[in-house]
Design a protein around this nucleic acid. Structure first.
Length: 157
DNA sequence: GCCAACGTTGGC
DNA sequence: GCCAACGTTGGC
């Protein structure tokens, strides 16, 4: 709790959108289905309750940060991995030896305006953002400065 | 829908 | 443990 951290989580809106999150009871949902080891390590080891989250829509036009959320439960085993009826079953992961982890997040609010990937890439202050440097990971740490800049951009036309 | 980037798998 | 083949992500 003492070390406030900031993250960017990607989701394909056709699979799960920010609107879906805000429609959940208490605007809270499990962030499950991550099946990438680097992202898993962040979820298991680093994301903590109370951390802030930028919710990013990927594989859509345009890709953009669309809202904010807060982590309400730190990393714990992703039980959808051993549910054969889930969208992302992985029989190698078991309750005794879980491979995959998830967190719970609570949606806070949409930005006034989405901040597009093009805007992020065009801003020299954001040239080092993990989103640009490490494509295809669904969990990115961001800095407080990057958080502030993107939220500010989300209030402007 | 194309395809670049990169992670994962599996033969050897 | 190397690395080619294959699969996936995700911008465009």
């Amino acid at each position: 709790m003492s070390d406030q951290r900031y993250w960017l989580l990607k989701s394909e809106p056709t699979a799960y959108s920010f609107t879906d999150l805000m429609a959940e009871p208490n605007q809270t949902a499990e962030w499950d289905g991550v099946r990438n080891y680097q992202a898993r390590n962040f979820l298991r080891d680093e994301i903590s309750k109370g951390d802030w989250v930028l919710f990013y829509h990927s594989n859509t036009n345009p890709p953009a940060v669309i809202g904010t959320a807060v982590v309400v439960r730190s990393g714990y085993p992703d039980n959808t991995a051993w549910d054969p009826n889930s969208d992302h079953p992985d029989p190698k992961s078991t309750p005794e030896n879980p491979i995959w982890f998830m967190v719970d997040i609570k949606g806070k609010g949409a930005l006034d305006y989405p901040v597009t990937l093009a805007q992020i890439k065009a801003d020299p202050r954001l040239k080092d953002i993990s989103l640009s440097r490490r494509p295809r990971i669904s969990v990115h740490p961001i800095t407080r400065m990057e958080w502030d800049i993107i939220l500010e951009m989300g209030k402007e036309m």
